[in-house]
């Protein structure tokens, strides 16, 4: 998985490509863990993300909780398969998906 990071003041956009799974989720977690100070708008771009596993969901959930405290988090360009995953797991209700 690759993460393209675009930071603009308090806006942080992370474009993910590849697979967000057990092995790659720690990368995203590390990325978010060190860069969220002062960020009020977090955008996750899933345009090139193939799939997401529960490890990825866990990272996304903790990011959502983090951003709930300091601003907002938006996920965009989610493909149908991953929307399915969000629907199954109830994440569709707690995430902001554009």
């Amino acid at each position: 998985m690759q993460i393209n990071k675009t930071k603009n003041d308090s806006n942080l956009t992370l474009a993910l490509s590849g697979r967000l799974d057990t092995n790659t989720a720690p990368l995203l977690e590390a990325e978010l863990g060190g860069n969220l100070d002062g960020v009020t708008d977090l955008v996750l771009d899933f345009a090139n993300l193939e799939y997401i596993s529960s490890a990825g969901l866990r990272v996304i959930l903790s990011a959502q909780k983090e951003m709930n405290a300091r601003g907002k988090m938006v996920i965009k360009n989610v493909c149908a398969d991953i929307i399915d995953v969000f629907d199954i797991t109830g994440f569709s209700d707690i995430l902001t998906i554009e």
Partner: peptide, 22 residues
């Protein structure tokens, strides 16, 4: 419980759940 809010939800347990579903 997939109906909880983000803050209420705990990580874990989702993996098998997803497998069951798919």
């Amino acid at each position: 419980d997939v109906s909880l809010t983000a803050d209420e939800r705990q990580p874990g347990g989702l993996g098998i759940f997803m497998v069951k579903k798919t």
